[in-house]
Design a protein around this nucleic acid. Sequence first.
DNA 1: GTCCGCAGTTTGGTATACCAAACGCGTTGC
DNA 2: GCAACGCGTTTGGTATACCAAACTGCGGAC
Lengths: 223, 223
Amino acid sequence: MSSTTTKIEPIGAVRERVLATLRQEIISGGLRPGDRLVERELAERFGVSRVPVREAIRALVAEGFVHFETPRRIVVRRLTPNDVKELFELREALEVYAAGLAAARATPQDLAEVEELLDRAAAATEAGDAETITDVNSRLHDRIVAMADNSLLIEALEPVAGRLRWMTRRNEEWPQLLVEHRELYEAIASGDPDRARAHALAHVRTNYDSTVRQLFGEAAELT
Amino acid sequence: MSSTTTKIEPIGAVRERVLATLRQEIISGGLRPGDRLVERELAERFGVSRVPVREAIRALVAEGFVHFETPRRIVVRRLTPNDVKELFELREALEVYAAGLAAARATPQDLAEVEELLDRAAAATEAGDAETITDVNSRLHDRIVAMADNSLLIEALEPVAGRLRWMTRRNEEWPQLLVEHRELYEAIASGDPDRARAHALAHVRTNYDSTVRQLFGEAAELT
DNA sequence: GTCCGCAGTTTGGTATACCAAACGCGTTGC
DNA sequence: GCAACGCGTTTGGTATACCAAACTGCGGAC
């Protein structure tokens, strides 16, 4: 079917395209928690067969965006306060550790790159450009983790970052966020792992509190 | 084909069977680093179609046992000293954090279960029963992580534990291991997260050193 | 003798077809 | 009227078929 309707795609591209689209729709809210994913339906919609759709769904399961509600029923995951708590705990474990490694391993080039990102974040914050702020902040975290120079750590944090973007769309006290990022950077640049870990910890905890407030309101904080 | 030769299997069982078998063969050494995994070959060997084999291979990739050496060439991963270092760093991040949570959250039932496991480990160590020691130690770590009461943490540690079993077959100073486990347990039971974290950290580091010695010899420790 | 190129083979990616279990809904019996 | 049974539909699991890219090896040209 597709051979007549679409140009030939690079190898493995169909699965990636379906995966990226679905993930994007979940993160942006087009697909909402509880919405069902039906293989045949999606295959028809994307104009592909069920096989790549299937693999994309598996990947989404692995990333934690969807799950098998019953043996044959795949739905977008519902976010309970406990889910958020667990996610932030995992994030805390990984990012705090990464910050400690980063302090020990960062090269001058690494630090220069982060400094540039901080400048861009500052400009975007001043301008109130939410899109850019989100993007730059995401890159910032990526760079800090990359400084830890451990590919497994990077892999482990990928799905965490994805789910984080999912639940923390537009909230954030941006100026406060910028201050924390700068402090974290300075701690890492100082080469003191303990200081870096402390700042990373504080940052994640602050971010957790604000996320919980945004998602569930003040009352729910007593998880 | 299979409908005439084999009984009907429970849903999703084929993929799981193939996955479990391949993982076991990698861990036990039947499949060695650099060995190739060929879909058609495995499908024929297991008497199943390529689809479940395919999904099993994807899972093995996600777990880190195999990787795409080139776009069409899937091989059992080779273990470099850096791989081991990265794995133990990830383990350190997760297990140390889990130990801290466990100290804060463990229930008396949890502690009783761990105590029982420790007794069994002690008996097995005295008897020199390697099989049982390995099994009990594995359960011990599982129980400790379970005490942290965070399903994401458990999920994240699953592939780590698998790769760990892969690289740490039969070595270990068992009596020393037992002492460390008992100390970690006592730290957790004391309810002091910092103490628990310190013991977990020491335990992982010791285990790392002995693993590196086993795999690469004394000389390679200067990674 | 070496290197480049072409054709056959290998192999993972994708599409299609069939199967069996689970779900829904209507019917029927109490 | 309500509950339980049963049949049809839905849907994910598995098998098979076809495709295109990459690898291999042989042969010819320089």
